[in-house]
């Protein structure tokens, strides 16, 4: 029997709809596979179905995970869906097979390869989020709005922004995911929200003039290092180069 491949998009709705369709097709778990749309390389002996995102189907999958497995499992699945791995949709599907069978205890069953894989995606995305808590830099505009640019591998904005919303509750700030053109907007004293920006809007933010504290920070950054202990390898281990694109000290 041919394998049926369900092609889905990056967003959560699309992945959950694909899970719904693949499950409901009743072809058997070994005969279906989920794949991200943009990475699909066609294979022989496969039928390809492009998934049409459907909010009702996605909601029903989401609800089943929370009810039949656990909220913790739902959070794990959510974080995995935000990861940059191409295999994430299929990883989630495989995890859910075990999840619906074993129930809430599945999250601790590290001996299962599917569970371990999902934990791995979770750990990676959590690490990336933490790195961005460290290395994200705001620039203050003349109007006092804080503006940060990041280019994360995973879609971490929803996990990153609560940290800053708690910390800078009285500030107007905006974090722009440059690659996805997605922005987290936080008006002072209010709840934050996500906004998708057009190319022109994103570019208008990119052409800000430098902040006056930039030089002060660079001065501090340069003087705080001890010349006799210089160790670029250790520095790169702790702060990989790809995080440095928008960091004030390297601008």
């Amino acid at each position: 029997m041919n394998t049926t491949v369900y092609l889905c998009d990056d967003d959560l709705d699309s992945i959950f709809t694909a899970v719904y369709d693949a499950w409901a097709s009743r072809k058997g778990h070994n005969h279906v596979r989920l794949q991200m749309n943009r990475t699909a390389t066609m294979e022989l002996f496969c039928d390809y179905i492009t998934v049409v995102p459907n909010a009702a189907k996605a909601e029903s999958v989401s609800r089943s995970i929370r009810r039949k497995i656990s909220t913790k499992a739902w959070h794990m699945v959510y974080r995995a869906a935000m990861s940059p791995e191409d295999s994430r949709a299929d990883d989630i599907y495989r995890f859910l097979i075990g999840g619906f069978y074993y129930g809430a205890c599945v999250v601790d069953m590290l001996a299962e390869p599917a569970v371990r894989r999902l934990q791995e995606l979770n750990r990676n995305i959590a690490n990336e989020t933490h790195y961005h808590k460290e290395f994200l830099r705001f620039d203050a505009t003349a109007e006092g709005i804080l503006f940060a640019r990041i280019r994360p591998k995973g879609n971490i904005l929803t996990m990153l922004t609560p940290h800053f919303a708690d910390r800078l509750s009285g500030e107007n700030f905006l974090i722009l995911d440059v690659g996805r053109r997605l922005a987290a907007v936080h008006p002072a004293g209010q709840d934050w929200y996500l906004a998708s920006l057009s190319r022109e809007q994103a570019e208008s933010f990119l052409s800000q003039k430098p902040d006056e504290y930039r030089d002060l920070w660079k001065t501090f950054y340069d003087t705080i290092a001890i010349e006799e202990r210089k160790n670029p390898l250790l520095q790169r281990n702790n702060m990989p180069l790809w995080y440095r694109e928008f960091m004030t000290e390297f601008l």
């Binding site: 808590k133 460290e134 009285g170 202990r229 210089k230 250790l234 281990n237 702060m239």
Partner: peptide, 26 residues
């Protein structure tokens, strides 16, 4: 946790914000 009217919070794990040329955390 953060509080309205003030700025900042702290995390018990600590957060490093940068690493100087000697590899030590800032």
């Amino acid at each position: 946790g953060g509080q309205s009217g003030t700025m900042g919070n702290t995390a018990s794990c600590g957060i490093c914000h940068s690493f100087a040329a000697d590899g030590r955390c800032i």
